[in-house]
């Protein structure tokens, strides 16, 4: 069971420039662990202290996984996971 994960420009140094990579797993957490095996360092850019980083958006198909089950969100064959760095900032 392979699921496509779309990688943003800034993280493509971990994927040899690939825009999308495949990984396996039944939940987002398993997917990210599998991703890390093939692309060391990527997990740390997505997860901090066991939770998704606050300024990284991860989507399952059309939904932000924060509104689903976070890292526990189940994933299935044919799903697409998209990673986008949040665009944020402020005056302080």
């Amino acid at each position: 069971m392979a699921i496509e994960i779309r990688i943003p420009t800034i993280l493509r140094t971990y994927t040899d420039g690939a825009k999308a990579v495949d990984a396996k797993g039944a939940t987002l957490q398993e997917l990210i662990d599998d991703l890390e095996a093939g692309h060391p360092g990527l997990k740390d850019r997505l997860i901090d202290k066991g939770a998704l980083r606050r300024f990284v958006n991860v989507y399952l198909n059309d939904e932000d996984v924060r509104f689903l089950g976070g890292l526990e969100t189940p994933v299935a064959d044919g799903d697409t996971v998209t990673v986008l760095p949040a665009v944020a900032g402020g005056a302080r």
């Binding site: 939904e63 932000d64 402020g90």
Partner: peptide, 23 residues
């Protein structure tokens, strides 16, 4: 033009779903 999901005078953040759509 994007929505500032924070609606704040000192902070901005693109609404995550709008960002996905636009990207």
């Amino acid at each position: 033009a994007m929505e500032n999901a924070e609606r704040s005078p000192t902070f901005y953040r693109f609404d995550s779903l709008e960002q996905l759509r636009v990207w």
